[in-house]
Write a protein that binds this DNA or RNA. Structure first.
Lengths: 241, 241
DNA sequence: AACTATAGTTTTGCATTGTGGAACGTTGAG
DNA sequence: CTCAACGTTCCACAATGCAAAACTATAGTT
């Protein structure tokens, strides 16, 4: 029941796409992972190959097809924010030398729309397309700033946090000042400063963060970065509509 | 009948995705374009939204979702060729100042895996993810070099060409010399030099082209470019496996 | 070459699922 | 307030997708 009814075929087909995306290259393999019978998966694969969502590479097996690349590009173009923000983020990355992220809210998660790697020797392993729980990232916390406290609580406690109360307190502070910090909340040694981007109605539609290892991100530098990032976010806001 | 049987639901769902990708932002609109009843499209949309293939943006409507971006990125990573070729293509683009394309065979079409825009004021409107008939592009003709003549004929005549015989003659010449030219075959004023990339077995798996307006691409320059591009393709080949 | 194992493909009867017409909600403009 | 336009839900029916099983293809082993 719970599942959406009347979409079994679709759900299965999308599961097959996911399986292939996850690196399962054989029919057998997909059947095993999904628990569907061979004939079902086979029929679905035929349809997906026909539609170029999946292609068969000799010697390798099933791989995501060119249609998926096409759609992915189209989907990115449907996010004008990304193009608008790009030059500002590049500047910010050059100015700070650090990794800059652009993220949007995606259900209860952050979705990284863009990443500028920065000039340090050491690099973050995050990448464009990553999707992480909101409360464990700097960008995510910035996206949460305007939410009601109940929502904070829900997100923080549902997303495997050490100490809910401490985080609630920090969120309180951040929301007053309109920025957020990430202090090894997700990843050891990683510190991050994030600021929201607002549309003309003042709603938060995205957030920008500057991230590095804590050795390069002492408290005072983090505080200094806030107004810098904020000014870039303002500029991006102005370009939106 | 004609279509693959037993995949109606999937075919319809993918058609809905395409409709949204093509800019149809409303249920009504999609129904009109596809000729499906409202309730059917509605149910499919529910499933696709649930799966994050499509999202609803207030004030805009239905747009491709973040899942599609994710899959698109994954699909590109499944093409290691792109990453391997990147630095060489960049160098080639800087050296020549012109637009550089990397394309692979995709059924009877070329699929542009990468595009380096070059430094000229004037730009090509092609973009990554474009899919064009093989015989009307330089990259496509390079991908055809090793095919049997029957295949040339099929592709050339099926893909709206002016003069099949003349093109066959040119292909003959190109296949002997292992490169191809595009001389306004597709687009007025556009000239293009393309060279295939081969794997260790000697099979053509991709092609690289340098493109510009004919004013920057006189005959003698095109001839000079052949060995230059060839040397870069060789380097890329060596990196494969 | 025969045998075995392992993968993919095709077939088929049946129950489930997806279908689409119609009725119902919702929203916003005049 | 009324109407129109669009989105949502409902439901009876049959076409569709399901899955077991039989079949084919390919590769590895004796």
């Amino acid at each position: 029941m719970s599942k959406l009814q009347g979409n079994q075929a679709l759900v299965k087909a999308l599961a097959v796409i996911d399986a292939v995306a996850d690196g399962h290259r054989q029919l057998k393999d997909i059947c095993l992972v999904l628990g569907y019978p061979k004939s079902t998966v086979h029929r679905i694969l035929q349809g997906l190959i026909e539609a170029r969502y999946i292609r068969e590479v000799k010697g390798i097996g099933l791989v995501l097809g060119t249609k998926v690349i096409q759609l992915g590009i189209r989907a990115q173009q449907d996010m004008p924010l990304k193009e608008i923000a790009k030059p500002y983020l590049r500047e910010l990355s050059e100015l700070t030398q650090e990794t800059v992220h652009l993220g949007i809210k995606d259900e209860d998660h952050v979705f990284y729309l863009d990443k500028l790697p920065g000039q340090r020797q050491i690099q973050m392993r995050s990448q464009v397309g990553d999707r992480l729980p909101m409360s464990i990232t700097g960008v995510g916390k910035a996206l949460m700033l305007d939410m009601p406290k109940m929502e904070w609580k829900r997100l923080i406690s549902s997303q495997t946090q050490q100490d809910v109360d401490a985080m609630m307190q920090r969120m309180n502070e951040y929301s007053k000042r309109d920025y957020s910090f990430d202090l090894e909340d997700n990843e050891d040694h990683v510190h991050c400063v994030a600021v929201p981007i607002r549309n003309k109605y003042g709603n938060i539609i995205a957030a920008v963060s500057v991230t590095s290892i804590k050795e390069y991100m002492p408290d005072d530098r983090m505080r200094e970065l806030v107004p810098v990032i904020t000014s870039y976010c303002k500029k991006i806001s102005e370009q939106l509509n």
